[in-house]
């Protein structure tokens, strides 16, 4: 339980996908101008990350690894994610139209979001849990890691949309207006997250 909590907290705060690993920058910069869009995108990413992990983890462990096909990981994962996103969209549209209306528009955006592919591959990478290095998370840990990474994405999006609404005004020097000042604001938010560095080790000591 403690282990899962460590994985969750570090993926939200310390190893934040957007602000620390700098993955998924396009939607982070592109869809964070309005807070409702940021929240919609963030929730859709959480949803897809968890579903994608639930789909790709068994594929890797029960299909690719036993048959010596580990090298097909990238190609299979991206196809699984693409198919999954399509599938989720169809299912939502048919059975939960309310949710589809809220999230559906963001789903196709996520197919080639590198944070989603990143999480599914990272599940099999090295993770530091309470001072130990674990290579390859088990299924439960992977789901928690995916949920945490998605939450971290949502958190970053929401915080950043709040920051952005204040920076792009007439007082901003002309050459910095638009993208440059947005990136510099992202740098400041990312700097704030750098402060979470040692928190997990000390929180769960």
């Amino acid at each position: 339980m403690k282990e899962l909590l460590i994985i969750l907290m570090s993926s939200v705060l310390v190893d934040n996908y957007v602000l620390s690993k700098t993955l998924g920058i396009c939607p982070f910069l592109g869809v964070s101008k309005k807070i409702d869009q940021a929240v919609g995108m963030g929730i859709a990413v959480i949803f897809v990350m968890i579903m994608a992990t639930a789909a790709t983890w068994p594929v890797q462990v029960y299909l690719l690894d036993p048959n010596g096909l580990g090298y097909l990981q990238t190609i299979v994962f991206i196809l699984v994610i693409a198919a999954l996103v399509q599938f989720i969209e169809i299912v939502l549209k048919k059975f939960i139209p309310g949710l589809h209306k809220a999230l559906g528009v963001y789903l196709p955006l996520i197919t080639t979001n590198c944070a989603v592919l990143g999480v599914t591959i990272d599940n099999f990478g090295n993770h530091s849990v309470g001072g130990e290095i674990i290579t390859g998370l088990n299924f439960g840990q992977s789901l928690v890691y995916a949920a945490g990474s998605g939450l971290g994405f949502l958190l970053a999006m929401v915080l950043f949309s709040g920051v952005r609404s204040r920076i792009d005004g007439p007082t901003t020097p002309k050459v910095f207006r638009g993208l440059p000042v947005t990136l510099i604001a992202a740098s400041v938010v990312s700097l704030a997250f750098l402060g979470f560095g040692g928190i997990i080790d000390n929180l769960f000591k």
């Binding site: 602000l19 620390s20 690993k21 700098t22 050459v175 910095f176 638009g178 993208l179 440059p180 000042v181 947005t182 990136l183 510099i184 992202a186 740098s187 400041v188 990312s190 700097l191 750098l194």
Partner: peptide, 22 residues
Amino acid sequence: GFLTKSPGGFLVFGLLIALSTV
């Protein structure tokens, strides 16, 4: 030191984009 961390990445990228704007 912070230039080698992700905030430094965002900052340098922002500055270079500003240069590109000029």
